[in-house]
Nucleic acid binder design. Sequence first.
DNA 1: GATAATTGTTATGGACCATATCAAATATCG
DNA 2: CGATATTTGATATGGTCCATAACAATTATC
Lengths: 173, 173
Amino acid sequence: MTVSKTAEKSSEKSGEAGKGRKDAGEPQAEALQLGELSEQLGYVLKRAQLKVFENFLRCMASLQLTPAQFSVLLLVEKNPGRNQTEIASTLGILRPNFVAMLDNLESRDLCARIRSTNDRRSHILVLTDKGKAVLARAKKLVASKHEARLNDLLGQANREALIAMLSKVANEF
Amino acid sequence: MTVSKTAEKSSEKSGEAGKGRKDAGEPQAEALQLGELSEQLGYVLKRAQLKVFENFLRCMASLQLTPAQFSVLLLVEKNPGRNQTEIASTLGILRPNFVAMLDNLESRDLCARIRSTNDRRSHILVLTDKGKAVLARAKKLVASKHEARLNDLLGQANREALIAMLSKVANEF
DNA sequence: GATAATTGTTATGGACCATATCAAATATCG
DNA sequence: CGATATTTGATATGGTCCATAACAATTATC
């Protein structure tokens, strides 16, 4: 069930540009049989997730946003005035690990920590103007380059069905 | 798009045993709005993947097999006589990282490295008798406790549709 | 007002992933 | 044949992400 991010370099040798794939060329070392692996939920889930994240990063290259950072900006925009603990726990990020993430976003002036007047322990999170602008551009990129790709691949109906099923698995499994 | 493995402890406070959930009890700190996040492919994919892996580990607790180890055993069983490079690259595992994995499986007598007579550089991989037995038990556990759960949740048809779509995403996205 | 709990933070360790490098064995090619 | 390049398994190492313990400042609780 393990899959890493590096595309297998071995495939570069065989199917390059316009070469009509010779079938009985060299010994060729026949491809392995995946067998039951290709129907293992966890295996195919992980592979799909890696591919999707990989594509997401490419789409966001110009904005330099990771999936995690994008999710933080989205959530802060939707829920302004919440503190670090609330945002982090909603995303399943542990508070200690959230600190460095925010340091990054804040250093890039996308997000700001504001001392709460009610509870001077907590930091209220808000998007800066730049943060809002970047997020707006990010959304457009995701919609046009990322989610649209899923539509092309599966069709609108199947895309929605897939996301609905994944949500169900995520929440009720 | 980030999700960790720890279940949010905060939910333990509210819905415990048989307590009828009071709606207007204490201040309650209203739950955050996920907004567009809940329809982000990457977000829901990652959450689902974590839940599935978590459940897999619980099911395999008695056999002490991780998803990655299970995939290795499955692939070696299906393709006996292949070397480390072939098995690893098929699973998307980099050769350096595969060494420790095999050390582990070999130390538990589940898998064996055999020097190839054709090419004395490579190690042929095979399952030991114990490895075959453990894998057989693992398959039964996965089928009865893991995959069956997906059937209960989605139904047979949807389960197959989900896996088919994930395969498509994994291969063609 | 003493004690407990919460918030953000630091330090730290583990798991996983990726790259460079190496010795041994093999392949390639002059 | 023999020099050079490639392949295989392995080691070392660094990065990222995840998880836990602990701490100071602040607030809640009694």
